[in-house]
Amino acid sequence: MLKGKYLVFLSLLAIFFVNLASAQVKDTVLKPLDTTRAVPQKNIRIDSSSKRQDTTKVKYINPGKIAGRKAIFKSLIVPGWGQLYNNQLLRDKLNAKGEKTGHFWQKTYTLSKVGIIYGGFTLLTISYIDNRNNYKIFLKEATYRQLNPGKKENPDLIRYGDTNVTDAQAIYKRNTQIIIFSYVAVYGVQVIDAYVAARLNFFNIDDSVAMKIMPSLINSQNSMYGFNVMPALKVSLRF
């Protein structure tokens, strides 16, 4: 009888643990994902047409503008170098027929600019030295006469009065300043000349450009001696 009770108790205990284990297994089972309710992702379309570069369009390159910049750069470094560069452009210049058009007189004129530039600098330098020396002489004499009234130091300036010495000092000083300004002016002019000449080397003037002048008659409102026309000159330009 006692054994029967133990068997019933053990059976009930076994059933309890089995039910408990099955409940835990059900809780740990994952539910399958419902893919039908998933939020659809939008397809992003990348428009690459805006980033495409049109390679069919070729950018125009102005050779005259490039040559002008080179001429300016060379003239700023060394005066006259831009003119020598323009002379090289004349030697390599071709017309519409593929023939060289750099004539002798054009080359001579371009090279003569270099001589004019350095000739001008040379004359300005000589004039500057001369005026500067005279300025120092008259300045020294004026200072001596101011410190020693009635006395004269330089025998070559005895014939000059005190006022004349002071005026000569001011004149030579002003001449020195003008010469310095002339240096800057010559330097700037040669830079501008090199740029303009370089641009004009690529200015197309072929044989089709012509000018014709011929006599003609025009109607006049004021008649004289019964004639209503007046003589004139007719100018025709062809491009």
Rank of each mutant, 00 (worst) to 15 (best):
Q24V: 13
Q146V: 00
F239P: 04
R69M: 04
E153D: 01
Q88C: 00
F181E: 00
L94N: 07
D162M: 05
T101K: 09
I137D: 02
F16L: 05
N219S: 10
K42D: 06
E99C: 06
P63E: 04
V29W: 10
D130G: 03
I178F: 15
A198T: 12
F9W: 02
V29F: 14
D156V: 10
T143Y: 02
K26N: 11
I77R: 13
I171V: 14
M230I: 14
T35F: 13
K74S: 01
L89H: 07
R145V: 03
I218V: 12
T55P: 00
S112N: 08
W81H: 09
Y6M: 13
N43V: 14
A194T: 12
R45A: 05
N87S: 08
M224L: 11
T163A: 10
K26Y: 06
T28P: 01
I117V: 15
I213P: 02
N133Y: 14
Y172L: 01
Q190T: 15
S216T: 14
D207I: 05
S49C: 03
K173C: 07
G64P: 02
L76R: 13
P40C: 01
G188S: 14
T166A: 12
L30M: 08
D156L: 12
T55I: 11
F181Q: 07
T35V: 10
S48P: 00
A71K: 01
N134W: 11
L124H: 04
T55Y: 14
T56E: 04
L10I: 10
T108M: 13
V114P: 00
Q106G: 13
G115F: 15
L33W: 08
N175S: 14
Y172K: 03
D167E: 07
G115K: 09
T122S: 13
Y172S: 02
I129H: 03
R91V: 05
I126S: 04
K5Q: 13
K70S: 05
P63Y: 06
